[in-house]
C-alpha cells in the first residue's frame, strides 16, 4: 500500500511538471505583461529594462526551468499586478475559495445523493419525474446564467441577499472566515447555490443510474428472496455497491468545484483564488497564473490519490488483490 502511494506521488510530480510546461507555452500567447505595468510616458528603454529584469526576454524553456527551480524551493515570485508575493496572495485568497467550495460540495452531496436514491427507488412517482426534469435544467444551464438569475431575483428585486463580495469576515490570523457573521453567511448563499447546482444535478443523475443498475443484479434479488427488509437492501447492499463509480466522479467533481469556482467568483466578485486568476489573465500576471495552475493541478492529483485509497476501503476485493 505504501509502495503504491509512493509510486503515485512520483507520477504526480511528472503530471505537475507537464502542467507547468504547457502553462508556460500558453503564456507566450496571452499578451505582453509589460504594457500593464507601465504607463503611457514610460520610455522604450525603461520598458526593455523591466522586461530584462523579469527575465521575460529569455526563451520559454529557460523561463520554465527558472519557474520549476524556484517552485521547488517554495518560491513563486511576485505578482506583476499587485506587487505582492504570489504565495502570500494565494494564502490570502484560499480561505474564501475553500469555504465556498466546501459549502457547495456539502450542498451538492447532501441533496444530490438522497435525491438520486429517491428517484431510483420511486421511478414512476411524479415527484421523481419532476426532480429529473429539474436536474436536466440544472445540468444544461451555464453557471454564470444561474448566478445572474439569482442576483436579479434575490438581490435586485427582493433585496434579500447581497449581490457581491463576502460580507464582513472575521480574521483568525491564519484564516479569514465569513461563517461567523450574519452578512458573511448571507453572502455565501447565492454563490454556493450557483456553484453547487451543476454538481448536484450531475450527482442525482449518476446515483440514480448506478442504483437502477445495481437493483437489477442477482444478489439484490437474492437478498429480497431471503426476506431482508427493503431498507437493508436499499442502503446496506444497493447503495454501497453504487458508490464506487460515484466516488470517482464525486472526487473529481470536488476538484472541479475548486477549479471552476472561477466563474461563480467573477459573477459574485467573490474574493477567492478564481477571481484572482481571472484578473491575472486579463492583466497577463504570469506569476499568479503559473502558481494557480500548479495549485489546481496539485489539488486534482491529491484528490485522485484519495479516491484511489477510498476504493480500497470500500471494495474489499481490491484489498485481497493487492
Amino acid at each position: 500500500m505504501l509502495l503504491y502511494i509512493i509510486r503515485r506521488l512520483v507520477q504526480s510530480v511528472l503530471v505537475m511538471l507537464t502542467v507547468a510546461l504547457i502553462a508556460f507555452t500558453l503564456f507566450q500567447f496571452v499578451g505582453d505583461p509589460i504594457n500593464n505595468m507601465v504607463d503611457q510616458d514610460t520610455t522604450l528603454a525603461e520598458r526593455e529594462r523591466i522586461r530584462k529584469e523579469l527575465g521575460l526576454d529569455d526563451p520559454v524553456i529557460v523561463q520554465f526551468w527558472r519557474f520549476v527551480e524556484n517552485a521547488a524551493r517554495g518560491e513563486f515570485g511576485v505578482s506583476y499586478r499587485l506587487k505582492k508575493p504570489v504565495a502570500e496572495l494565494i494564502a490570502e485568497r484560499f480561505p474564501a475559495t475553500l469555504e465556498l467550495s466546501i459549502i457547495s460540495a456539502i450542498l451538492a452531496l447532501g441533496i444530490g445523493i438522497p435525491m438520486g436514491v429517491y428517484t431510483a427507488l420511486n421511478r414512476e412517482r411524479w415527484t421523481a419525474k419532476l426532480f429529473m426534469t429539474l436536474s436536466l435544467i440544472g445540468v444544461s444551464l451555464p453557471t454564470f446564467l444561474i448566478g445572474i438569475f439569482l442576483i436579479l431575483i434575490f438581490g435586485v428585486q427582493l433585496r434579500w441577499l447581497p449581490t457581491f463580495g463576502r460580507g464582513e469576515v472575521v480574521d483568525l490570523g491564519w484564516w479569514t472566515t465569513g461563517l461567523l457573521t450574519a452578512s458573511g453567511l448571507k453572502s455565501l448563499i447565492m454563490p454556493s447555490i450557483t456553484l453547487a447546482v451543476f454538481q448536484m444535478t450531475l450527482i442525482v443523475r449518476l446515483v440514480r443510474a448506478e442504483m437502477l443498475e445495481v437493483l437489477r443484479t442477482d444478489y439484490i434479488r437474492f437478498a429480497r428472496a431471503r426476506g431482508l427488509k427493503d431498507r437493508a437492501i436499499h442502503f446496506g447492499h444497493a447503495l454501497k455497491n453504487t458508490l464506487v463509480p460515484v466516488i470517482t466522479i464525486i472526487g473529481l467533481q470536488v476538484g472541479a468545484i475548486i477549479a471552476f469556482a472561477i466563474i461563480t467568483e467573477s459573477v459574485f466578485q467573490w474574493p477567492g483564488m478564481g477571481l484572482l486568476f481571472v484578473q491575472a489573465i486579463s492583466e497577463v500576471d504570469i506569476p499568479v497564473m503559473a502558481a494557480y495552475l500548479m495549485l489546481i493541478a496539485f489539488v486534482f492529483v491529491v484528490i485522485n490519490l484519495v479516491v484511489d485509497i477510498l476504493y480500497v476501503v470500500i471494495d474489499p476485493r481490491l484489498r485481497t488483490e493487492s
Binding site: 442576483i151 435586485v156 467573477s266
Partner: peptide, 12 residues
C-alpha cells in the same frame, strides 16, 4: 470587475 455585477450592486 464584472459589469453585470456592478450594475446589479447599484440597482440593489
Amino acid at each position: 470587475s464584472q459589469a453585470a455585477t456592478r450594475v446589479a450592486a447599484l440597482l440593489s
